[in-house]
Design a protein around this nucleic acid. Structure first.
Lengths: 317, 317
DNA sequence: ACTTCGTTTGAGCATATGATCAGTGTCGTA
DNA sequence: TACGACACTGATCATATGCTCAAACGAAGT
């Protein structure tokens, strides 16, 4: 009996699901056709869904991206995750990604209530900022999380913050310091300067933070761009460095490394686990391990990447 | 440009569809995630549907039945169509069908406003009536469409009307006549009796009519049950008889045959095209042609059958 | 037979949805 | 450059949906 009633109930659920999703009937119509009350029709439709009698199939490349995003969100407890389709015709490191990151930031900046936005640096972020249309956002404050002066004193080519501020007309708080200074003492001295302290306070309270994720292998941007020497890079790698965010090197588990250049870094310290919305933007095979480490260590709670990188991240487990 | 915007719009539609149907987001949540207004999110979901980006699949035997029912309804302009799954473990002519017909009739009888219900005869209907639970429907009137007295004067074994009336406590109007009488004159004489005339008037105004559909081949129930002789059957077949409803023989196009036993039949005449809701109940390979003819001739505008028979009907075209 | 527990039901309501409409920006054209 | 046609947007509203709750029903155990 229970078997039978169970079965006929599922039959009805299937009918209801068919009528609702495929024939496009309203629940009232279904109720009349199946001779039940409207709420019961709703229960049947709902049952058809929960029993997987009816399933959805999305015939579009985006489907895979959404699926990957959902899995990454689930696995790493992300507050934001966007996967862009990998364009097989191009392997530029910014195709799609820049637009997506720009759209994300544009959306955030569109808010009326004032936000503090922390901004990292790097080629990817620079490309993203270029995709942002001109806006008028005087209510927000943009804070640099990393110095933009190289050891020799020249301004970094990738001055993301200044460009962004220019585009969206928001007040910005640059960090006119070298990324890495020669000694720990010197670093502590600089950090005690009142403007720097206020900037770090502001950054610590950032509502939204956008950062790139850097490799720490032989092509580490920190080294390529002249912020750290080859020797320093080697030292950090010996300490287990797997990647870096705003200069902060971390190991494969996402733990910020103690010692090495991290002791002489002027960048705003990362709060662990990430507070507010901290979105990493990166893609590519060589970035997969650094990204994964950052996710594991909860250095970031948001991610913008591409499909193939997302697959790698899930494969790494 | 149009290409690009078109494409990104479809991308968004796919995203919206994914979020809506697969992730179960509300349109408001989608709107926020895609950074569009709620109405636009609705448009995107709707677009995903109309562009067939998202499709539904029903993993249940019922799915095929619903599909077949929809096609038959469309093709023959039916007011009611129910297809029951064919149970491959059984080829009884009443499995499932009886329950479905019973459910249909039960639903109709559940109405508060008074109905006139015309009832045919036959094994299938008898089985259906047995599936109806006891009810209390004094507001409805049940009318027999066909005599239940055989030539020899004995009452038909399949007295569907009496049994139904007994079960649902509704007043009934039996037709205590032989189905076929020896001569046309005799028939006309019987039809002129006042009670018979009133019954026929009532039947003509029936809101719901439930009939079986009989074969006219060598195993015709009319002959098996002794209402017509082998010679009469042969004659009707020579006149093109493909099937019968309440004794009225019709050809393969559904046209009521003139002459033969039809001239000496006491059954209530069929209104063509069917008025009210006239539901035929039948299944089986040998019934497919008769059913199809009845549909073609619009002798019925409702059908209860099973899946395999429905397929045959559609194949016949 | 009666009671009690669990399940299911339908009424009502808060919310989500889909459609309409006026306003706005964009594109092509003169 | 100005104009008109068109498409798209977001405000607003009627409708559909999903959920809560109290009541009724049925099953199982005294």
């Amino acid at each position: 009996m229970s078997q039978d009633s169970e079965r006929s109930r599922l039959d009805d659920a299937a009918r209801a699901g068919w009528l609702y999703f495929i024939a496009g009937n309203t629940q009232d119509e279904i109720a009349k056709k199946l001779n039940v009350s409207r709420p019961t029709a709703q229960r049947l439709v709902s049952l058809a869904l929960s029993e997987r009698l009816i399933t959805f199939r999305l015939d579009h490349p985006i489907a895979a991206c959404m699926e990957l995003a959902a899995r990454l969100t689930e696995r790493h407890g992300l507050a934001h995750c966007q996967i862009v389709p990998t364009d097989p015709d191009s392997d530029s490191s910014v195709v799609g990604l820049a637009e997506a990151a720009a759209a994300f930031l544009e959306q955030k900046l569109g808010a009326a209530e004032p936000l503090v936005v922390g901004v990292g640096t790097g080629r990817t972020l620079r490309a993203a900022v270029e995709q942002i249309p001109r806006m008028n956002c005087p209510q927000h404050r943009l804070v640099s999380l990393v110095g933009h002066i190289s050891m020799e004193g020249s301004a970094s080519f990738f001055d993301v913050l200044a460009r962004l501020s220019d585009l969206v007309r928001a007040p910005h708080y640059p960090m006119p310091l070298p990324v890495v200074v020669p000694s720990r003492a010197e670093r502590d001295q600089l950090l005690n300067l009142e403007p720097v302290r206020r900037l770090r306070e502001l950054a610590a309270a950032a509502d939204v933070t956008l950062v790139g994720i850097g490799r720490m292998d032989e092509s580490a941007p920190l080294h390529i761009d002249g912020f750290i020497s080859a020797a320093e890079l080697s030292a950090m790698r010996r300490l287990g460095a797997a990647g870096e965010i705003t200069g902060w090197a971390f190991d494969a588990t996402g733990r910020i490394i103690e010692g090495g250049t991290n002791d002489r870094l002027t960048s705003v310290p990362r709060i662990v686990p990430a507070r507010g919305l901290v979105v990493g933007v990166a893609k590519g095979v060589s970035k997969a391990l650094p990204i994964h480490a950052a996710l594991r260590g909860r250095l970031i709670n948001g991610l913008v990447t591409d499909e193939s990188t997302a697959r790698l991240l899930l494969d790494i487990g």
